[in-house]
Simulated scan of single mutants.
Amino acid sequence: MTYDSTVDSRPRRRTGRKLLTGLLVLVVLLLIVAVVADRVGANYAEREIANRVAAQIENQGATASRPEVDVAGVPFLTQVAAGNYEDIGIVVRDLSGQQDGKAVRMPLVDITARDVRAPLSTLMNGQGDIVAGSVAGEATLEYASVAALIGRDGVVLAEKDGKLAVRAPLSAAGQTLNVTGTADVTIEGELVRIRFQELTAEGLESVPFAQNLVNAYARQISIDLQLPPLPLDLKLQKVTPRPEGLVVTAQASEVPLNTTA
């Protein structure tokens, strides 16, 4: 007598497929949980840094919109575990201070903190320092705001060939002269110094002592700008005339990010 020894393996294959499908679903769910946890952690860090920067601005007597913070690098939790972070971008809008009762406003301050060291223990218990190895920033001061601070009617400022150019009316001997020229713009401590040089005026030859008047006018419209204090210990480095305004660059090193001083 002969017996058929063939065994039907189809149920076993179906079971294997079910196990594989379940495993894939589990992996996908774990990835989703990891991504969500990663984003929650990043959002927490961004919120805390924004709070610190906002407190610094307030303590320095300035005002601004709430800082926007972006912690770069994925995954964030890997950076947490290592205690070292990639670039952290901070944008402060409408940073404003006062000079002689007039508002000095910088519509955009763009800051990047690099080599941020934040040990996991510090994040967990709040003890210790979170330090950025270097911080760099750019702040824009609009020409209309500078002209308003100069306080002379008709002064128009703009960038021309990489320099700060001026055009303004000057009344002399019953005539109105159209004065034009450029300025030297430098940094001295916390001040932006604007000194107008070599101003000229059309029809100058027809007005007695007109050049003396133009030189005096150049001194009158020269100004020292006290900018709103920048957060994160940023120190002014240079100022560059650009089409959008005077762009001030600032730097700092070894900056604590978890203090409000």
Rank of each mutant, 00 (worst) to 15 (best):
P208Q: 08
T180P: 01
P208H: 09
F196E: 08
T182C: 06
E188Q: 15
A201Y: 06
E188C: 06
T182W: 02
L213T: 05
D224N: 13
P229I: 04
L149Q: 12
N212D: 10
K163H: 09
A183D: 10
G137R: 04
Q226G: 07
G137Y: 05
V156L: 13
A148P: 07
F209Y: 11
Y143A: 05
A168G: 01
V214E: 01
E142Y: 07
S206C: 03
G203S: 11
E202N: 14
A216E: 10
V166M: 05
E159K: 06
N215S: 12
T180I: 09
I221S: 00
A216D: 11
R193M: 11
V156P: 07
N178Q: 15
G189H: 14
V135P: 00
N178E: 15
L177D: 01
A136T: 15
L230K: 05
Q211Y: 13
F209W: 07
A173L: 04
L141M: 12
N212A: 12
L225W: 00
N178H: 12
A216C: 03
V156F: 12
L177P: 02
Q197M: 15
A144N: 08
E142K: 13
Q197D: 15
L227W: 04
G151R: 10
T180M: 11
Y143N: 06
G189D: 13
L177G: 02
A168S: 12
R152Y: 10
P228W: 01
V207W: 03
A210E: 01
E138Y: 06
G151F: 12
F209N: 14
A144H: 00
V166Y: 05
G162T: 11
A183T: 05
N215L: 02
V192S: 06
L191A: 13
A136V: 13
F196Q: 07
A210G: 06
N215T: 13
T186R: 14
A168Q: 05
E202R: 14
A201D: 03
A144R: 04
N215H: 04
R219H: 03
V155F: 11
D153P: 00
L149V: 03
G133F: 07
V214G: 00
T186W: 07
E190P: 08
G137F: 04
K163E: 13
G203Q: 11
G151S: 09
N212Q: 10
N215R: 05
G137H: 06
T180D: 10
G154S: 05
G133A: 05
R219N: 10
D184R: 14
I194E: 01
S222G: 08
V185D: 03
V214P: 00
P229H: 08
P169W: 05
V146K: 03
A136F: 09
L191V: 13
L227P: 04
V192C: 09
L191C: 08
L157E: 02
T140D: 02
D153M: 00
P169Q: 09
A172E: 02
Y217I: 00
A165S: 10
Y217E: 00
N212E: 07
A168L: 11
E188T: 15
I221Y: 01
L177C: 08
P208R: 10
G162A: 04
A136Q: 12
A168T: 14
